[in-house]
């Protein structure tokens, strides 16, 4: 934003800088409107032009309120006024406002169709001449709504009891299988990252032998609690994959984010400080973690991806335990090996 020339006519200045900026905002896949303190439009990008059916020529230098036959929603007008007056940024969430602006899904045929679901952010921009401007960013909320609806219908179809592990309260294997298939194909289809964590309690059988099965059950409950405490997004859930093995799907998380989460999980369980006299890696209970991250545009199917996660976990177990081993983008066709494990040293 700092490189925008201070002059009012920057949006269409002939300068190279202005031209590049113009190309950039016209390429952006969300709506950008810049208005001055009177509500006069200074910038109207392609996305807004397409979804409003109003070309930039007809919008620029006109007032936002007069552009739409039905006027602007009161909440939107208040927000704009507040941003200009107090210079504090404002969010208009889709949940509470739905469709404040008359924008429509493409192709915009007629105004009778339903408005596009929107999320809006309004931020103050102060020019070097101390002019107060408002940048309105609009994103299409329809996609995320659809995705949430699909996930919701899933969780409704599978009733809570049928998808929950009775002992630990984590989701069960059945839930994992359905969710993993859905998330993997979404990642593939939309070319977005996905990470999968597989983890296993170190020397759990020895623990059971030494402390008894009821104590072992308690340990699993504590581990799940510790894992849950580190997951902050509603889409990241702990599932009991089997026995003392757990899996966590991290949608939209690439290799870096996934690694950070994995390490936090390891530290959280270690931090429980549950004494484990027969462990050979520590005097307390620990976990081994394998993580695999799907990078967009690589050939890898769900089975191969899952095998890779298993392989990473196997590598962690045989590479000393109480550690994280990470695999990026297994290529299908090749045997899924842990060639270059990026080991994180145990604490």
């Amino acid at each position: 934003m700092n490189s925008i020339p201070a002059k009012n006519e920057f949006a269409f200045s002939g300068e190279i800088g202005g031209k590049i900026a113009e190309n950039i905002w016209d390429s952006i896949k969300s709506g950008l409107i810049l208005v001055d303190s009177e509500g006069k439009i200074l910038l109207w990008n392609d996305w807004i032009a397409q979804h409003s059916g109003i070309p930039a020529e007809s919008a620029l230098n006109h007032f936002l309120g007069s552009l739409f036959p039905d006027g602007l929603a009161a909440s939107f007008k208040n927000a704009l006024r507040n941003v200009l007056h107090y210079k504090l940024p404002i969010i208009l969430s889709n949940a509470l406002h739905r469709s404040p602006l008359p924008l429509y899904p493409l192709p915009v045929a007629h105004r009778k169709q339903d408005r596009m679901q929107q999320s809006i952010i309004i931020t103050p921009i102060v020019t070097s001449e101390k002019k107060r401007l408002c940048l309105i960013q609009v994103t299409d909320a329809t996609l995320s709504i659809k995705r949430e609806r699909v996930l919701k219908s899933y969780s409704e179809r599978l009733s809570k009891a049928a998808i929950t592990d009775a002992l630990t309260g984590a989701y069960n294997r059945r839930f994992f299988d359905e969710r993993f298939t859905a998330e993997f194909s979404r990642a593939q289809r939309q070319n977005i990252p996905l990470s999968l964590i597989m983890l296993d309690v170190d020397f759990f059988k020895d623990y059971n032998d030494r402390y008894g099965h009821p104590a072992g059950d308690k340990v699993l409950i504590s581990v799940v609690k510790a894992l849950k405490s580190q997951l902050h997004r509603p889409t990241d859930v702990v599932t009991r994959y089997g026995g003392e093995e757990f899996a966590i799907i991290l949608p939209d998380s690439g290799s870096e984010g996934g690694r950070i989460v994995a390490e936090k999980l390891r530290v959280a369980v270690s931090g429980l400080n549950i004494p484990h006299g027969t462990s050979t890696v520590a005097d307390h209970l620990t976990i081994s973690i394998g993580i695999v991250s799907y990078q967009p545009d690589t050939s890898c199917n769900a089975t191969c991806f899952l095998e890779a996660a298993d392989a990473a976990l196997y590598s962690a177990k045989h590479g000393g335990r109480n550690c994280v081993r990470h695999l990026v983008t297994p290529e299908c066709g090749k045997p899924c090996q842990v060639d270059t494990p990026q080991a994180d040293s145990p604490d």
Binding site: I91, L92, S93, N94, A95, L96, H97, R98, S119, S144, I145, R147, E148, R149, L151, K152, P234, T235
Partner: peptide, 21 residues
Amino acid sequence: MMASQVGIEDVAEYEQEAMCE
């Protein structure tokens, strides 16, 4: 608040943004 607006419920992604607002 969401119900009074749009008559929907229990949609995680809505919630995050609504809490922000």
